[in-house]
Write a protein that binds this DNA or RNA. Sequence first.
DNA 1: CCTATAGTTCACCTTATGGAGAACTATCAG
DNA 2: CTGATAGTTCTCCATAAGGTGAACTATAGG
Lengths: 114, 114
Amino acid sequence: MENYQPALNSAFHALADPTRRAVIQRLLRGATTVKNLAEPFPIGLPAFLKHLRVLEESGLIATQKTGRIRTCRLEPRRLQQAEAWLAEQRALWEAGADRLAAYVEREMPEEPKP
Amino acid sequence: MENYQPALNSAFHALADPTRRAVIQRLLRGATTVKNLAEPFPIGLPAFLKHLRVLEESGLIATQKTGRIRTCRLEPRRLQQAEAWLAEQRALWEAGADRLAAYVEREMPEEPKP
DNA sequence: CCTATAGTTCACCTTATGGAGAACTATCAG
DNA sequence: CTGATAGTTCTCCATAAGGTGAACTATAGG
């Protein structure tokens, strides 16, 4: 089953936290430094760095260190990948012509189990 | 900040688990019972029921008990809501005309801090 | 009534998550 | 060289997640 997709696991998990979603939204407006990103949040730097690591390991952002400054930028491909999964489910739902048929087949099978 | 959206928190969290995504995909083909849903998975019923509760509390599915049978169905609105958030971010990214401008303003501010 | 079926609840375990503070490292500015 | 700045790492803590097995409840059928 193509349903075990680690990329989706970690992407959706990363997206489940409001701090991390806010980081993503901030990065939509351009790459910036850790300090800059962390500034609006009421948590300590160590905690914030954990969020960044979750985002980076999920592939939603990428970072690069130059001198003592780490710059973070958005990696839109993963975002799109998550969106694609959701869009596909919606498409299947909307297509759903076979929903009733499947229901009938399930509730009134032609060959009940012995 | 409209970024603290409990609905998105719980929806994305629910979507982060492959078992729960598989349940959603199963429900695309029509409502069914707990037993039916649980059958393909290698985990015990109590663990599976926890997954169902996460899905239900996130608003991604709805359930209804008749007699001793609980029927689960997909609630596509939440799915769409999550998709909408992602789509919006992508739209903002693709619009991103001000990305360079913001970068310049950040890296070369007109009034550096004293 | 009796029993299999469908869920449910309970106590428990292990690991992950999100946060804290303190101490440390590496660089840039003067 | 000497700070100040920007990250980083460390240990610790509380809670949430995901799983287990055993015991329990409530129907539906025969």
